[in-house]
Design a protein around this nucleic acid. Structure first.
Lengths: 220, 220
DNA sequence: GATCCTCCCTACCACTCGGTAGTCTGAGGA
DNA sequence: TCCTCAGACTACCGAGTGGTAGGGAGGATC
């Protein structure tokens, strides 16, 4: 009997969820408030009661995404400040964040395309620290000889960001290029593994010889 | 006196040009026929005289882009079938194609996001041969020991495609992450150079030693 | 029991959308 | 000179858009 059916006030969250999915799939301009409210099972004015404006809703979706990211970020950065192959941990956790829900990558990519200049402050706030710290980590690695000196730290990080987001955002589509109908789950794993390989191989110098621990894998 | 002002019938091309720019910047749903016709300097029904439907216009924009790509593709593929560092040529020409006009990358990325399943046949037609040939080239390289055996050819090519398109589509936005206000032109050059470096380094095995010709650069 | 207040509803608004109908103009060909 | 016809125009349409006005149901508070 305590709020038996729809738990009141989490309607706002339902709206947010459906809006996120639809925006990710069809873009902000490709989705009407009627579409969203229909999915939620309410009328359009009810939706506007919770989010006074379509643009308010868009921002709310984005904020929730970024809030989640901010939750994960500190752990990533802590990992980045320590040991050597922590780079692996940072990158694969970033990949995991976007792989967990491909809408995240699609949403950010769309915002990047649709509202580039409105994204600038958000990038400054949420991406800049990540880039700075990782760049510094790379530079330190270069001084210590672990990282290829030809690498351009800032540009490298930018490319990896685009690669992670882009590859996950377009994954469903590019599945079509797979050799045969590989079980999607496996394909995703193979795909992200190759992403990590590209990132690491292009960054770190090969082990000088002698002790081996991670550098080479066995020839399948 | 021979068609002095606007050369008749290239109005269609002007429409196409403005449509391309606007679609790339704001997306198909974010642009109205009124927007486009205003840019061209004609009225909406005049636009619809040339392209009967908004969707027809969209397809025309896409077709022109793909036609241009099909112009470039054969030369790329020919280059791919020969020598060793032709890989470099293929990739950098592909990059050049998208760098020449960033709208191309943005347009394709948008189509990939907005109409994934409608893009499938186009991918099959225009991307598949590219992927297949390059993949085979990579596999041959693996057999010959030039290419890292850990690399996953098909997945690698997919990632590089996404990386090229994604990095160029979002370049203007990510300029913001640059250390200071570097002259955009230089930044683009530095950025694409790093892209090529990532692509090559993560693909080819380091030179076995002895003769050197391209593998390492001087420590600036 | 009257009064809020929250939340959803119906009805409606002005506006924009893609697209159509039909007219006018001016160059080219007979 | 007359006719044709491509190519632009004005005027208009129905559907759909984001958003507003205002009412009503139901729970909590006094």
């Amino acid at each position: 009997m305590p709020t038996p059916r729809s738990t009141r006030a989490d309607i706002a969250q339902q709206i947010l969820d459906h809006a996120r999915r639809l925006f990710a799939a069809h873009g902000f301009d490709g989705v009407s408030l009627a579409d969203i409210s229909k999915r939620v099972g309410i009328r359009k004015p009810s939706l506007l009661y919770h989010y006074g404006t379509k643009d308010t809703l868009r921002q709310a979706v984005l904020e929730q995404l970024l809030a989640h990211w901010n939750d994960v970020l500190p752990k990533l950065l802590m990992a980045a400040t320590t040991g050597s192959e922590q780079f692996d941990a940072v990158l694969s956790k970033t990949v995991a964040f976007f792989a967990e829900d491909h809408d995240r990558a699609r949403l950010i990519l769309r915002e990047l395309l649709d509202r580039p200049q409105q994204m600038q402050p958000l990038i400054e706030l949420h991406v800049r620290p990540w880039v700075t710290i990782v760049s510094n980590y790379i530079r330190r690695g270069q001084e210590q000889g672990r990282v290829r000196f030809e690498a351009d730290p800032q540009s490298y990080v930018a490319h990896m960001t685009v690669l992670v987001i882009g590859s996950l955002a377009t994954f469903e589509t590019l599945v079509a290029l797979a050799p045969e109908h590989e079980p999607r789950e496996l394909l995703l794993e193979r795909h992200t593994a190759e992403l990590l390989r590209i990132a690491k191989t292009s960054l770190f110098r090969p082990r000088p010889a002698g002790v081996a621990s991670q550098a080479n894998e066995s020839p399948h």
